[in-house]
Design a protein around this nucleic acid. Sequence first.
DNA 1: CTGTTAGCGCTTTCAC
DNA 2: GTGAAAGCGCTAACAG
Lengths: 345, 345
Amino acid sequence: MRIHQTTIYDIAKELKISKSTVSRALTGHPEVKSETRQAVLRLAEELDYQRSRLSLNLIARKSSLIGIIVPEFNTSFFPQVVIGAQETASKHGYNIIVSQSNEQFETEVENTKVMLASQVDGILVSVTKETRSFEHLKVFERKGIPIVFFNRVCDEMLVPKVVINDYEAAFGAVEHLIQTGKRRIAHLAGPESLITSRKRLKGYEDALKKHQIPLDESLIIPYDLTLGKVKAFVKQLMELKYPPDGLFMVNDPAAIEAIQTIKHLGIRIPEEIGIVGFSNDYGSELIEPSLTTIAQPQRLMGSTAVQLLLELMDKEASQWKAITKTLDSSLIIRNSSVRLESEPV
Amino acid sequence: MRIHQTTIYDIAKELKISKSTVSRALTGHPEVKSETRQAVLRLAEELDYQRSRLSLNLIARKSSLIGIIVPEFNTSFFPQVVIGAQETASKHGYNIIVSQSNEQFETEVENTKVMLASQVDGILVSVTKETRSFEHLKVFERKGIPIVFFNRVCDEMLVPKVVINDYEAAFGAVEHLIQTGKRRIAHLAGPESLITSRKRLKGYEDALKKHQIPLDESLIIPYDLTLGKVKAFVKQLMELKYPPDGLFMVNDPAAIEAIQTIKHLGIRIPEEIGIVGFSNDYGSELIEPSLTTIAQPQRLMGSTAVQLLLELMDKEASQWKAITKTLDSSLIIRNSSVRLESEPV
DNA sequence: CTGTTAGCGCTTTCAC
DNA sequence: GTGAAAGCGCTAACAG
């Protein structure tokens, strides 16, 4: 049970002035006699007065809340994005409310409803792997509630997006494998529904093309991000008549799983097969051999998304532009693609 | 810019009735003629009416917000707790606003101010490793804002806490090492400021005592959670005249670092030294040898903390009780303490 | 069953 | 410079 909060009325009564004057003194309005202001300020301090966000929110018709919907919270990726978003939002007087969708479309839809009911002033979204319809998100557009996508974006909505250079990153990763002498490079490709997956696939294909390596469809395996399936996929690849000597995985968890499977098969990494992942997850540095992967600027992604959202808030929905901010990623070369010196103790 | 939201007044005007009636119809008040109710409901639907949380908040003098302050977001631990908290809070109509303190006391103090300014209805806290003064948190108690600690708690405040059975877990971990034949067991102990650290240390000591193993102070190393220092500490231990044959680490990141250091030294794990960590972090399963560690029910911790917080909300601050909920953890035995069969491919 | 009125805590015209 | 009054969107006590 909350103790009584002092209000401007308490201060006004005590000082025998009107609450309008108290309000003016408190908000730094110029037309207040400085003695009055001093008195108000002093008493406010003394009574531990705090302005009520609730009433300010009602007057301004805004909640000072930014919603963020993420598909999962298991890897290190989204928590880091949230931190970046939270820090930037906080600087601008907004709070972040988080909800995660468990990679389930239904949960995502539920979460948007919660956001709507909470009257968020804007929303940051990264969709689940299952999300194919975007009606639940278009609602925000229609209501004039700013929306910004990050990482897993929706192309059919004309709103800002923050992504990383998936295509270039994938291209670079595959080219790296080629430069280490690999020629038969396989790719575990993410769900087609995700644009990131498609871009990574395209990067893979174009890198091969550039180096005149013919595309072999049997080396491209569609993967729905169900980690449990990786082992079978990798075995399938390695049992081919001409097994791959390189492997570009759509994300790190899958790459780590692949490393373990391949080690069990008694195949040497990176000599017999070079492996590259994507994301620089927690485990990628720990696995043996350590995983060559692509690091993404998660926190920057979060803060950039908030920045774009804040810009939208000043505009009419009709003026929103579908700009896409592409952030740079970087290839981190470790032992799964090149045998490096082991670090000294 | 937000589009005009339909209000109960819009509906009232359209239907030529008073807004009280509309309100009653909408809230399911029994004393409304069913025709009137039907009409209101239909029109509300049609106009896509949504009740304004902002005004409800003002009337109820509550924000429907629960704040959660965590010391860090780098390991998997706190994100999982947040998810548990969020899911439970959501079921009860509350949203969670998160802020992390970067393990810095100053940031934690800042975060409490933000929470206060946001007028959270309650707050969940896990303190930083630097936190020794609790004045910034006692403010909540004084203001009658419910507060519940989890994981890293404050003993001097008489409010509910959710912890895991650190003592028993540590005891069990050390006993496990003893049962594998280890006798000289070292412990990298966390900061004394954290109760969890102290309990784990006590569990370590008592396990040794139970098995009549004399305590050797040189085997207990105070560690401030600065990961970079682990390597030197471990080397120091292994260069002792009688180096340890067992190692109980206060958390997993440190344990993982220890494994790497010990491998570099050419010492075999677990034969020459058995290692146990704490937390079952992301990497513990991936490192080689995989890490024996203690798994904690993070999500349960989050939801339990919210549950306790909700209970406090119904009571006067004077009636709050300092109950402590202790959740069970479980020892996960892996290869760093016992040479297990390697899993079949 | 329904309308009128007051009020949640604050800002903001409009007077004086 | 300051006060009175209206209003943000809604609920609830009080009449009728």
